[in-house]
């Protein structure tokens, strides 16, 4: 899933400075599961914003804070903000507000902005990564969407993501007792994980030959990616 966390409240208030009526809009999928942007977080954030209603903070660049009156917040959460059809039921509500504060990931925020061309849409979250929930309140990045998945070669552990240097032929000299030089307290060495896993599978011979340079053109390095599939194109 996509893992996100809420922004510092001052940044959010900065965006909302000068607005009177704001739709606080949650998303019912990834960010609900990672406890950052679902119905519950919408309710909490909206009440925090109302309580600090004076919005006595530095306005965002280019935004003027009239400094009078309270902020009115409307709350809603749709199933997915990355799918246009789910916005239909809230169109009216959105149109009645002068801004939308989206608690979706960056994809959802961008779609909301496209669907409401005349309305400012602000992000309430920092979209962090694609990953898994490891334990209560702990998430781990696992995939960078490189477009050329080699998990089949590396024992189901991603070297692009789990190695701090994205090495294809690790581990580097900084791997010590299973931990990465970048943060030996918190970051596991992805290459130790690959080694352990292939060893357990009896497939260490996979690592004997050097992996060739990657084709980074399939990543974002090749420009923003699009996908079109003839087999599902309609009409």
């Amino acid at each position: 899933m996509i893992v996100a966390e809420q922004k510092q409240i001052d940044e959010i208030k900065g965006y909302l400075a000068g607005h009177r009526r704001v739709l606080v809009l949650g998303c019912g999928t990834c960010v609900t599961v990672c406890l950052a942007g679902g119905e519950r977080e919408v309710a909490t954030l909206a009440s925090v914003l109302r309580l600090g209603g004076g919005l006595a903070c530095v306005p965002a660049p280019g935004v003027r804070d009239s400094g009078e009156g309270k902020l009115e917040t409307l709350e809603n959460t749709i199933e997915r903000q990355c799918d246009a059809e789910f916005f239909d039921p809230i169109r009216r509500q959105a149109e009645s507000c002068d801004a939308i504060l989206s608690l979706a990931c960056g994809v959802g925020v961008q779609l909301a902005a496209r669907l409401f061309p005349n309305k400012p849409v602000y992000p309430a979250l920092n979209t962090k990564f694609m990953g898994t929930n490891e334990a209560g309140g702990k998430w781990q990045e696992n995939c960078l969407a490189c477009g050329d998945c080699k998990l089949g070669v590396f024992g189901g552990v991603c070297p692009v993501t789990r190695c701090s240097k994205s090495l294809s032929n690790g581990p580097c000299g900084g791997s010590e007792e299973g931990m990465c030089e970048v943060d030996p307290e918190r970051i596991e060495c992805g290459w130790q994980l690959i080694y352990d896993r292939l060893k357990a599978l009896g497939k260490l011979e996979t690592l004997l030959a050097a992996a060739p340079p990657r084709d980074w053109s399939k990543t974002h390095s090749g420009g923003p990616r699009r996908l079109s599939r003839e087999d599902v194109v309609q009409g």
Binding site: P171, G173, G174, S175, E176, G178, L207, L208, A209, A210
Partner: peptide, 20 residues
């Protein structure tokens, strides 16, 4: 080559990859 990094047994294999 770093003989003092881990996993120790893999260090010579990685050295051999560099030689190859």
């Amino acid at each position: 080559a770093n003989p003092f990094a881990d996993p120790f047994e893999f260090r010579v294999i990685r050295l051999e990859k560099k030689i190859a």
